[in-house]
């Protein structure tokens, strides 16, 4: 038993420790990136300037660049198009030779993402992207965003939420079509309100509040507590132990159709474990919440009566 625990503790701490050692090694051997890491490998050389780009790509420039947030790269001596596509003098001199300019079409998602993150990686939202589930599953920035052909102008998305997310997460789409659901399809809530699609350190990229609580408490503030009498599974297992947050066929997004069946999953053995019911539920109290109304936590009743 002791050996097992020792192994667990070893596993618990070994993986970060190994990574830390590797990190130190990598840090020592790796040189710092250049201060302006944006210029890609291809097209290294002289900048042609935005006006030069415009002579051939005027249509793209006016319709699909000038009105986007990336236009700010042209301001204050910025390189504009070449901020992302690299110095283009060779490309111009080559008569528009596409092999002499950096094209996002020809590179891997990882490379494309690295280019985007060289500017956007410092933002709070995108800080965890390289360790995110999306990155691990080879979903890159350009799978959701399109700098030139966005259908959603504010975040340059290829499609507005939630349709964009539904493209991959089809089960979520089905869940939100259930009778009781969070109002995502109605436009009140967006997927990104609850999930940070760019990554978190939590499971399923669910956002959390700075206090550590699940994002659920942002709207359902009355459930956050702290309470004098905490209902333990609310704290230990989380909201999703009783509710299915995307949608459910049961009222209040419950995992089961009758609330007492949910309670009885834990409160089943009067002599062992959390006390079970003493009432005949088939006759009168079919729902435990009839009396235990403050089931998320109470400030005045240890049995959650008020």
């Amino acid at each position: 038993m002791k050996t097992r625990r020792t192994w667990k503790q070893l596993l618990e701490w070994a993986s970060p420790a190994v990574l830390l050692l590797l990190s130190i090694q990598a840090t020592i051997v790796a040189s710092p990136q250049e201060k302006n890491a944006t210029p890609p490998e291809k097209g290294t050389g002289q900048y042609a300037g935005v006006d030069t780009c415009k002579t051939c790509h005027e249509d793209l420039y006016k319709k699909n660049f000038e009105s986007t947030p990336h236009f700010k790269t042209t301001l204050r001596d910025g390189h504009g198009c070449e901020s992302c596509h690299g110095p283009g003098a060779a490309h111009v001199e080559g008569g528009g030779d596409i092999t002499k300019i950096f094209s996002f079409k020809s590179i891997s998602r990882k490379e494309a993402t690295a280019h985007c993150l060289s500017c956007h990686g410092e933002k709070h939202e995108q800080r965890h992207f390289s360790s995110s589930a999306h990155a691990s599953n080879d979903v890159g920035c350009l799978d959701c965003h399109s700098p030139h052909h966005a259908k959603e102008p504010e975040h340059l998305l290829v499609q507005a939420q939630p349709k964009l997310c539904y493209g991959c997460h089809v089960t979520a789409k089905a869940d939100f079509a259930k009778p009781y659901h969070h109002r995502v399809d109605e436009g009140l809530i967006q997927c990104s309100d609850c999930h940070n699609v760019h990554g978190t350190t939590t499971v399923r990229q669910v956002r959390s509040l700075p206090t550590g609580d699940a994002i659920c408490a942002k709207c359902h503030a009355d459930k956050q507590g702290p309470f004098v009498y905490e209902h333990v599974p609310v704290k230990t297992e989380g909201c999703s132990s009783c509710h299915t947050p995307h949608g459910s066929t049961n009222p209040r997004y419950l995992r089961v159709s009758q609330v007492n069946l949910l309670c009885l999953q834990c409160h089943s053995f009067p002599a062992q474990g959390p006390a079970g019911p003493t009432h005949d539920q088939s006759k009168k109290y079919q729902a435990c919440t009839m009396c235990h109304t403050a089931i998320h936590g109470s400030n005045a009743s240890n049995v959650f009566f008020r």
């Binding site: 990190s23 990598a26 840090t27 790796a30 040189s31 710092p32 990136q33 993150l117 060289s118 990686g121 410092e122 800080r127 965890h128 390289s130 360790s131």
Partner: peptide, 9 residues
Amino acid sequence: AYFQRLEFT
């Protein structure tokens, strides 16, 4: 992301 091979948050 100061170092080329390492990103840390």
